[in-house]
Simulated scan of single mutants.
Amino acid sequence: MSEDLKTTPLHALHLELGGKMVPFAGYDMPVQYKQGIMKEHTHTREACGLFDVSHMGQALLKGADVQAAIESLTPSDIKGLPQNGIRYSLLMNEQGGIRDDFMVTNRGDHLYLVVNAACKEADFDYIARSLPDYELELLNDRALLALQGPMAPVVLNRFAPGIDQLIFMNMGEYDIAGIPCLVSRSGYTGEDGYEISVPADKAEDLARKLLGEDEVEAIGLGARDSLRLEVGLCLYGADIDETTSPIEASLNWAVGKRRREEGGFPGHGVVMTHLNEGIARKRVGIKPLGRAPARAHTEIADQDGNIIGEITSGGFGPTFQGPVAMGYVKHEFSKIGTSVNLIVRGKAMPAEIAKLPFVPQRYYKG
């Protein structure tokens, strides 16, 4: 391990479990364990996987009318969010691009924020500078675990009875095996599941208890990526970044109806122009018609050989049982079923624009 890589509170456990460690967002993280990415992916879809996502940034934003304050940075409707409700949100720049995607929970007198690992220092600096009258408390003393898969509520209910009734995109405070935790019914696999914010000094104890259940296996970053790709979820820095608008990224739903009318967030003019006048390119699902996966940065061509876009995420979908990808194409080629070619090592490989998600999302909505 490089000495300048950070570690999470579960680092020793990852090594004990045989995790293959790789640098990721400045951290030494497990890309897979002994059973491998394919089996880890399938196990999460069929039973329950435990992910260490402690590298992500957690913080509390405090102050008067804090819901209105955060709306000056995001196009999401946070003022309309019920207490303990969660919203997938976007931090915007003045050009209509996406600084980061993040989760915002309305805790009443404060907000609970979770941001991406690679962006967390820049995100928190930006929020603090933009909202100087508000207190941003970084939760560096907490770990974050994700328990994902159809058996997640069954498993967690053994330790925290009643937690199976928590609804998707809602949060609550629970004692799990006697450990006080902040739990959201959310995740980034397309499966039912939870994200558990736990005191860092209790994280390994909790992880061991969960891994002690028959249904639960430790899952690495590799399967986390293939799981989110199959259900069409964006990876920041690949599928969305400072040069993509929410409308180009097919994230129109993340721009609240009231916010479109009122504005008051960075890039509002660009977003409204894209909504009202159309876009030149669009994020779409792409299905290679052979068995070979197409990776990020693969060029996309029309039937005449003209380059019309690029893949941003691609790989093999174990549940889909075939290659899957996402990327951007010129808007006129974005209709589902449109035939395209992928330029792989100079050869044109047939593909088509596909509907997202490739496999159904299975969230618990009550």
Rank of each mutant, 00 (worst) to 15 (best):
C119I: 07
D100S: 15
L136R: 01
D109S: 10
M169K: 02
L166E: 12
D123Q: 06
D175S: 01
L166P: 11
M169Q: 05
N157L: 12
A143T: 00
I179F: 00
P153K: 08
M151D: 11
V115A: 11
A177C: 11
I127S: 03
K120H: 06
A177G: 09
G187H: 15
E121V: 03
D133N: 14
L145K: 06
N116D: 09
A122M: 07
D109L: 09
F159E: 07
P150K: 15
M169T: 02
N157K: 12
K120F: 08
E173N: 11
Y174C: 11
A152E: 05
Y174P: 03
V104F: 09
Y134R: 08
L138E: 07
D100R: 12
D133G: 09
A128D: 04
L131D: 01
P180N: 00
R99N: 11
N106I: 13
G172F: 08
G108T: 13
I127H: 05
R107V: 13
P150A: 13
L144R: 06
I163Y: 07
N106D: 10
L144V: 15
G162H: 12
L113W: 01
D164P: 03
R185D: 10
L145T: 07
R107D: 04
L166F: 10
N106A: 11
N170K: 15
I163W: 09
P161Y: 13
D141P: 08
Q148L: 10
G172P: 06
G178E: 01
L145I: 01
G108L: 13
S184F: 13
V114A: 13
V115H: 10
L145S: 09
F168V: 12
R158I: 02
Y188P: 03
L138M: 05
L136I: 07
L166C: 01
K120Q: 11
D109N: 13
N170H: 15
R107P: 02
F102P: 14
E135A: 15
V183H: 02
A128F: 05
E135P: 04
L113E: 11
Y126F: 03
L182A: 07
L147V: 12
L147A: 04
S130F: 01
P132I: 13
H110D: 07
G172Y: 14
I127Q: 06
P180W: 03
R158P: 06
H110C: 12
N157P: 15
D101M: 14
I163H: 08
I163P: 00
D109R: 05
L111Q: 07
